[in-house]
């Protein structure tokens, strides 16, 4: 006997299927939301792109790229508290200046090789955390511009996005 509850469950199930199927068809099981790039302040050649990403299957985001008309290079970066940062001196760097010795809320940006995407979980690239860093911008990013960003995943999938330049987060 088909009860009202069963019908309801079936209806919900089919809705979920439709929604999963749709994103899967379009983006290989990858969903990106709230993508934006920050409008450039004057006098800087660096920029950042942020977005929320969900992968249906466990995957890793391994690289990012933008056309040369946007920036010379794009990399995955992460902001971390200095105490938690990889020791850059160990990596062959030389500290030019250390001022006042790491007492309070000091943060540093570091390059990351990949960002883990657990199955079905939404991972946010946001200010103060992960972001796509753009280096040597070809021109300042202006509100109204759109950036073509290509994401490459450990699984071999790729995803092309159109990212709007905005003054603040959406």
């Amino acid at each position: 006997m088909i009860t009202r509850r069963t019908l309801f469950a079936a209806a919900v199930g089919s809705l979920l299927l439709v929604s999963c199927g749709k994103s899967s068809d379009n983006n290989n099981g990858l969903t990106v939301a709230n993508a934006w790039a920050r409008q450039s302040p004057s006098a800087t050649s660096f920029g950042a792109i942020y977005f929320d990403i969900t992968s249906k299957d466990a995957d890793t985001l391994v690289s990012v790229s933008v056309p040369a008309s946007v920036a010379k290079m794009a990399q995955l970066h992460e902001m971390v508290a200095v105490s938690a940062a990889t020791d850059t001196t160990m990596a062959g760097g030389t500290t030019d200046t250390t001022i006042a010795g790491g007492m309070n809320g000091e943060m540093v940006m570091q390059h990351v090789d990949k960002i883990e995407l657990p199955a079905g979980a939404t991972v946010s690239l946001k200010p103060g955390g992960y972001h796509v860093m753009l280096m040597e911008l070809a021109k300042p990013l202006a509100v109204g511009d759109t950036i073509e960003l290509t994401l490459t995943f450990g699984s071999g999938k790729t995803l092309a996005l159109k990212v709007p330049v905005q003054e603040t987060a959406p």
Partner: peptide
Amino acid sequence: FLASSSVTTLADGTVSVSHTAS
């Protein structure tokens, strides 16, 4: 201000700057 910062030149020539973010 109980703040701090450092400037480090990495092996690949890029400059890494850490600073109190408050």
